[in-house]
Amino acid sequence: MSSGQGGLASGSAVMVLEDGRVFRGSSFGAAGETLGEAVFCTAMTGYQETLTDPSYHRQIVVATAPQIGNTGWNDEDDESGKIWVAGYAVRDPARRASNWRATTTLQDALERRGVVGIAGIDTRALVRHLRTRGSMKAGIFSGEPAAAPVEELLARVNGQPSMLGANLAGEVSTDDVYTLEPEGEHRFTVVAVDLGIKTNTPRMFAQRGIRVHVVPESVTLDRIKELRPDGVFLSNGPGDPATQDDAVSLTKSVLGEGIPLFGICFGNQILGRALGLGTYKMKFGHRGINVPVVDHTTGQISITAQNHGFALEGEAGQRFDTPFGTAEVSHTCANDGTVEGVQLVDGKTIKAFSVQYHPEAAAGPHDAAYLFDRFAGLMEEKA
């Protein structure tokens, strides 16, 4: 594919899966090679937020939408300080950016940040393959690396670490504490444990009059208590939740202190583990902004934004005893029954809760934004 008005890179590229399946296309983004777990995202829009979501660390994202890049890249919608995906695979990249907010093209953003991608492949066939066989190790090779024999490329792909057992939260977490001040009158203070937090999450808290101290994933309970929080938040993040023994131990300590707690995505798995549930790696996960979830306490169905390849064990409405009281599976996916939320209850009072999806919805529907208000309600009751 030759360079055009959108700055499309020239040259060939090849994507190799661990089972030997090969897709040949054109270079997209930076030239070179990259390794990661091949996953697919069903969102029709919001690729900038997807690419900058730390939860995608070490993953090669395949876009199911055939046309990508139409709105270019802007200076406002990043969900972190960098592009975290290991690579990007698309069918038909736009040749020009067609949005008034765009400051550059997607191709230029990928190239400038050193992200290797591939374009012009049959992403429909690739997604069907991943849905059938499951997410798997993969690599994208463009430029000089693409000229190597497929057998050599396959060996590189299979030589990389598995996502199962990957401890990645520390690689994406902040190094230092930072604070986002509330908009308007200060109501509460929340300590947000950064396991891979997205920019819009503290912003959603701030809009509700909540001061947010974002802390590293290595934070101690003593440090949290020094910040005098009204509540503790566990963020989204990448990797295998089975590796997060320290985060689980911290969560148990927070629950023992009686501090209201709210978790999303990776944080849902951490809370679930703290309450005694196991986790497992899903076949191909949920990634997109169109996943239906049932809230079994109300019967309401929300369309949600999701990005996870691991899940909690359990069934809809399951209740179980914990050292902190009775817990229950509060939400499940309407598509496949996957656990999408747990909560710790005391009679009719919720003491802690979490959901597997992203109520900050960047990008995504706003159906679940009320969960930030629910958490504020928990803190108000505690006060």
Rank of each mutant, 00 (worst) to 15 (best):
Y357V: 03
L277C: 10
T243C: 13
G288P: 09
I350A: 12
V339T: 06
E181Y: 08
A206P: 08
G272E: 08
G69K: 05
F188D: 06
H296S: 11
G69S: 06
G209C: 06
A305C: 12
T50H: 10
G7H: 14
A43V: 00
T104A: 13
F324E: 01
D230E: 06
T52F: 01
A169K: 13
L221I: 14
Y178P: 00
I121A: 05
D321N: 08
N99H: 14
A97I: 03
G341E: 08
F188L: 09
G29Y: 03
R187P: 00
F375A: 07
D176K: 12
I60T: 01
Y47H: 02
A97F: 03
E111K: 14
V127I: 02
Y357I: 02
R223C: 00
T103E: 08
P229M: 10
G278M: 05
T105E: 08
A138W: 05
V193H: 06
E257G: 05
K252F: 01
N290K: 14
G165P: 02
V39Q: 00
W100E: 06
E360Q: 10
L110V: 06
S162E: 12
G87R: 11
R24H: 07
G25K: 00
G364D: 04
D245W: 00
A311H: 02
T105Q: 06
G231L: 12
D336W: 12
A125P: 01
P359I: 05
N307R: 09
Q67W: 00
V172Y: 04
K382R: 15
F266H: 15
R95A: 13
Y56S: 06
F28K: 02
G347H: 13
D77I: 03
T45M: 04
K348Y: 08
R319S: 14
D346E: 15
N307Y: 02
A305L: 11
Y47C: 01
T132V: 02
T332S: 14
V90S: 10
Q318D: 09
A169D: 02
F188R: 14
E111D: 15
S55Q: 14
A376K: 08
G278Q: 11
G11P: 03
F28S: 07
F353G: 11
G143Q: 08
F310W: 07
I121M: 02
A206I: 05
I68E: 06
Q306K: 14
G309D: 05
A9C: 08
